[in-house]
Design a protein around this nucleic acid. Structure first.
Lengths: 354, 354
DNA sequence: CTGAAAGCGCTAACAC
DNA sequence: GTGTTAGCGCTTTCAG
């Protein structure tokens, strides 16, 4: 049965105190006699009273809620991120509202909704937005952090990793292995991550005088990557190496190569991914990849958001974290470099304009 | 810069109307002259006004928020579920609050928080709760649906699938393949799903006079399942078949068997999982498993919740959906049954007491 | 159709 | 310490 909601008034009456005494008893840092609080708590228990946090939010103007926006959880990279961020905020006494953005113009459709719901901050996971949208949000004055997507606007904080250098490393490394027909399996077209990884990759190749042999789009998705792989290898002289813009697609590519083309990885084709999702380390794929520091990314992003919310730091920041090559067994072993350098990839190769 | 929040009063002043006219202009079904509404909307636009949904919730006593509680997203089964449920509710104009339950007594620590936040309904994904907790919630009168976990209390709705029959099928099928050293890799101890799958499995074996050869616990997690597999197979006469309480563990087992023990699946060992997560169908594992109808489960659960919220149906329901064997290549091919029956598994074998 | 007025349940001054 | 008094920003009667 639906129990009528019991208010602080009811508790006050039962406990024989004022309504505000009840309110005080439920706030941690308030001057209440221990005796009063005890009385109140007992009355509250009897009535099954729970403070109404909506009323509380209205008056304190703080909802203690953060919006998290994602466009899909197909990629474990983001579900891991979501879980980590979630636990962090929960621990800080915040609640998380989850928004899924539709794939087409995802941002525009959710932003209005988000603003209405009076969240105190917004965390975007790989949501592409243009500078006009960014400006709108910044202008609204709501703390905002974008993870894993660059937006051309200084007014909002961003944390991502060094996609360009990661791409550069992949191109360079694959060619150093002796490969000459090196292909690229692209992610979401026009996403900043894909643009940067691709640019770095192409430069890494170009710097040693190699051209990109072929390119197809996999939209960062497993199924699309399988199709892209088929297109890439339906050729009398197919690629002998493949850089995929994320791990999920790299795994799709490996599966397709092995089970549809009968090609061996890494013997026939070397494959490199990006992200270092948990599966990349599973022995079935043992994927050489560029590790993004998820833990650190989430930490930085959440800290940035909290700082803005608490007005500690009103400035926006653009944080770029280093990526680390993880050498595993999806790439041919190198004769020339018996022991590979697993240091973080430097950003020495960056074009100044990015 | 933090813009001072603009209220309906401000808009009213600018538009030269009363504050209630503004309120009406923003509610879809209200009698306002089209002309007035136009004036108001224009003023609102100028000021960048967005209705404060907290104030609205306070007065309408409806937060239009649903709490979703999960304990981990490591298993894609649940991230898929979360995403589907999320999109469904979003489409109905509801917001989702996400709660992660700590692994130890997860339920107790979040329930108070949930109740305070005035959500209109709660959806629990595989959270174990005892009957006392269930009663507390039911007594509170908040619409509540538990997915994939049985609780011994009629007062709250549940949707799950036929774990017992699925287990039964696995036991029966493995023995029909000629296996005689059939082991069980258990999920979370004392979770209803594990109890039911295990009971069905044991019965399926017993009915053809076979004993369970060995059993270890994998807690439904990849890493734990790797360890469990090592224990299971560190034996001079290891199992020749394995039923795992979920797909994630089955994949872990296959990886460990192939890459650490040098055993072939299915030639040396047949493996069956449970859930049918997307990865199960990837060619790298091609896992024979019992498909839970995720889509339908989410649909039923969300509908149940909405019905309760809208008072259409105040009764609680316990829905058990059928599971479907998905024959793939992680099990030895059957000589006797060249064409396997892929129908839903019947529940003819159920013990009456469950 | 529109405005005035009365709260929703709570917190935060402010006196006592 | 404790009670009293104002609201938070909105929806919703209720007269006009």
């Amino acid at each position: 049965m639906k129990r009528k909601s019991v208010t602080s008034r009811d508790v006050a009456k039962l406990a024989g105190v004022s309504q505000s005494a009840v309110s005080r008893s439920f706030s941690a840092d308030a001057k209440v006699a221990e005796k009063t609080r005890k009385k109140v708590l007992e009355a509250a228990r009897q009535l099954g009273y729970r403070p109404n946090s909506i009323a509380r939010s209205l008056i304190t103007r703080s909802s203690r809620t953060i919006a998290v926006v994602a466009y899909s959880l197909e990629n474990p990279f983001y579900s891991v991120m979501l879980e980590k961020a979630s636990r962090y905020f929960q621990q800080q006494g915040y609640h998380l509202q989850l928004f899924f953005a539709p794939s087409d113009n995802g941002f525009a459709t959710v932003i209005d909704d988000i603003i209405r719901s009076q969240v105190e901050g917004v965390l975007m996971l790989a949501i592409t937005m243009d500078s006009a949208q960014a400006e709108e949000v910044a202008d609204f004055g709501i703390p905002f952090v974008v993870i894993n997507r660059t937006v051309n606007f200084d007014g909002i904080s961003q944390v991502g990793s060094d996609n360009y250098s990661g791409g550069y490393w992949a191109g360079h490394y694959l060619s150093s292995l002796g490969h000459r027909r090196i292909a690229y399996l692209a992610g979401l077209p026009d996403s900043s991550t894909d643009l940067q990884r691709q640019a770095g990759f192409l430069k890494g190749l170009a710097d040693v005088g190699v051209d990109c042999y072929a390119m197809e789009v996999g939209n960062y998705r497993y199924a699309d990557a399988c199709h892209a792989t088929r297109r890439l290898f339906a050729n009398s002289t197919p690629p002998d190496a493949l850089f995929c813009a994320n791990d999920l697609m790299a795994i799709a590519a490996i599966d397709t190569l092995r089970h549809e083309f009968g090609l061996a990885v890494p013997d026939d084709v070397s494959v490199i991914g990006f992200d270092d999702i948990p599966m990349a380390d599973w022995p079935s794929h043992s994927l050489t990849t560029l590790k993004q520091p998820v833990e650190l990314m989430v930490l930085k992003a959440t800290e940035l958001l909290m700082a803005q919310i608490n007005q500690i730091d009103i400035n926006t920041e653009h944080i770029m974290l280093p990526v680390t090559p993880m050498l595993r067994n999806s790439t041919r072993r190198s004769a020339r470099h018996p022991k590979e350098n697993l240091e973080e990839v430097s950003d020495a190769h960056h074009p100044s304009a990015r």
